[in-house]
Amino acid sequence: MSEVVYNRIAMLRAERGVTRRQLAEALGVHYQTIGYLERGEFSPSLHLALRIARHFEVPVEVVFSAEPFPRLGDPAATSIVRPA
């Protein structure tokens, strides 16, 4: 329970216009599994996590984090990207 992995799969998927079905087929998992991953009910194996990142062509830390992702528009979020 302590090892929660946060992810932004749903956000990336929406942004790229990819359906759950398409992502499931690209990764070789069941359709419902994408939902489980997005809601954090399941964590991907390291290998699967890397494949997800590669699928979206982003570094793995853009998709996964040990800390909750800051909300979009949150001033704290910009401060992370551009440290004062």
Binding site: M1, E3, L27, G28, V29, H30, T33, Y36, L37, E41, F42, S43, P44, S45, H47, L48, R51
Partner: peptide, 20 residues
């Protein structure tokens, strides 16, 4: 050849992996 999905849990956390 379609990948199989493997699920398991460890320390109360659930995992999923995809492999041939």
């Amino acid at each position: 050849s379609i990948d199989a999905e493997v699920r398991w849990s460890r320390d109360g956390q659930r995992f999923v992996h995809s492999t041939s």
